[in-house]
Amino acid sequence: MTLDYLGDKEDGLLEVVLEGGGVREFVIEAIERADELVPTNIEWRIHFTGDLVRSVLELDADEAYTTTRGSNTVAGKTISQSDGSFDVLVSNINFWGVEPSSVDPAIAGPNIVRRVRHSLQHEALHVAIDARAEDTLSLWEAIYGLDPNEDVWTRHLGFMLEDYRIEITLAGREPNPYTKVSTMDSALDHFASERARSYEAGVGNGNLIAGRDAMIGAGVALTRDLVYLAGETNDPRPDLPAAALADWDRFVAPIWAEWVSILRQAKPATEPMTAAEITSIIRQLCVLVSKWLLSVGFKHVHVDGNEQVWWLAGFEW
């Protein structure tokens, strides 16, 4: 495992990671804990970056990559290379709130240190799963027999299932200090707001939602948040912020028990899963998510290789 830094030297992150020509102690400890999760025969590189999008472009040539996921922001990314090695990018978002002049964990706050540890271990487990070839798109996209409303979700839910396996692994080892329980109000509000805007756009356009990218993004983002939430709790009614309760009861409560039940079939990221086990879970999730979106007024489908969202004609708002 090797470590380097990508990005502008003036963005302040370098001073956070380094001190006196060496890597700060709490960063070294976080890296060592993450390295324990990666098979010893796997070569992987950690890159701290002040610009995650630009770094992904440099290492993966992915011009479509963004860090926005609904009301959330991506904190890291793992890239597999053709030689079997991996590049792990760790964003400066993990160090937000840390001033270069006061990066001592006791001063910066324990949540910053916990977040760095969690992010590094999360990405390390992506490496472990990827090294076992349990993340391949060919596996997810070879799920046949789904209708267009369901098939559109295979790729999304394949990635999300991997995140779920990682989060249940880290729940007892290095839990994320920033929980989905505490932020579900903003996630649900984002979905509800885009739904309202999409309704107005769709009814005047033959029910094809003009701002479909925003609605697709909102649906995918909330689904991803629910995957993470299921990794934190399986309570029938999670202890959510008061502001989230009405939208929770309206949009999520009807599917929550089945959602958790399906995800609980997955194994932790440290345990291998067969292709049949993985595809069975993804198939069940695709059917449930499609049923869920239809129940709140949307049909999300593939059309000529592109994703589209349609407002259901005659749906009662």
Rank of each mutant, 00 (worst) to 15 (best):
M1H: 05
T2E: 15
D4H: 13
Y5F: 06
L6D: 10
K9Q: 09
D11S: 14
G12Q: 09
L13T: 07
L13Q: 02
L14F: 13
L18Y: 14
E19L: 15
E19P: 11
G20W: 07
G22Q: 13
F26T: 12
I28N: 14
E29Y: 12
A30E: 10
A30S: 10
A30R: 13
E32C: 05
H47M: 12
T49L: 09
S55W: 11
L59C: 09
A61C: 04
D62G: 08
T66R: 07
T68Y: 12
G70C: 07
N72K: 14
N72S: 13
G76R: 02
Q81L: 14
G84H: 07
F86R: 10
F86L: 09
I93E: 14
W96A: 07
W96G: 01
E99Y: 10
E99M: 14
S101E: 15
S101P: 04
V103T: 11
D104C: 03
I107K: 13
G109K: 02
P110V: 08
V113I: 08
L120H: 03
H122C: 01
V127D: 08
V127R: 11
A128I: 00
A128Q: 00
I129A: 03
A131E: 00
T136E: 13
L139F: 07
E141V: 05
A142L: 05
A142S: 15
I143N: 09
D147M: 10
D147Q: 08
D147Y: 12
T154C: 10
L157N: 02
G158C: 01
F159H: 09
L161N: 01
D163R: 02
R165Y: 00
E167K: 09
I168A: 00
R173H: 04
P175L: 02
P175Y: 07
N176R: 06
P177R: 03
S182V: 11
S182I: 13
M184P: 05
D185H: 07
F191K: 06
F191Q: 12
R195T: 09
R195M: 13
A196R: 12
S198N: 13
N207Y: 15
G211R: 15
D213L: 13
A214W: 06
M215Y: 04
A218T: 05
V220C: 11
A221V: 10
R224I: 09
V227R: 02
G231M: 04
T233G: 01
N234G: 11
P236W: 06
R237G: 09
R237E: 13
L240K: 01
A242W: 10
L245A: 10
A246H: 08
D247Q: 06
R250C: 01
F251T: 02
F251A: 03
F251Y: 14
V252T: 05
L263I: 08
A266Y: 03
K267E: 12
M273T: 00
T274G: 04
E277I: 07
T279I: 00
T279N: 14
I281C: 00
Q284V: 09
L285E: 07
L288D: 02
V289Q: 04
L293G: 01
H300W: 06
H300Q: 12
D304M: 15
N306D: 11
Q308E: 05
V309G: 04
W310A: 06
L312P: 05
F315S: 01
E316T: 11
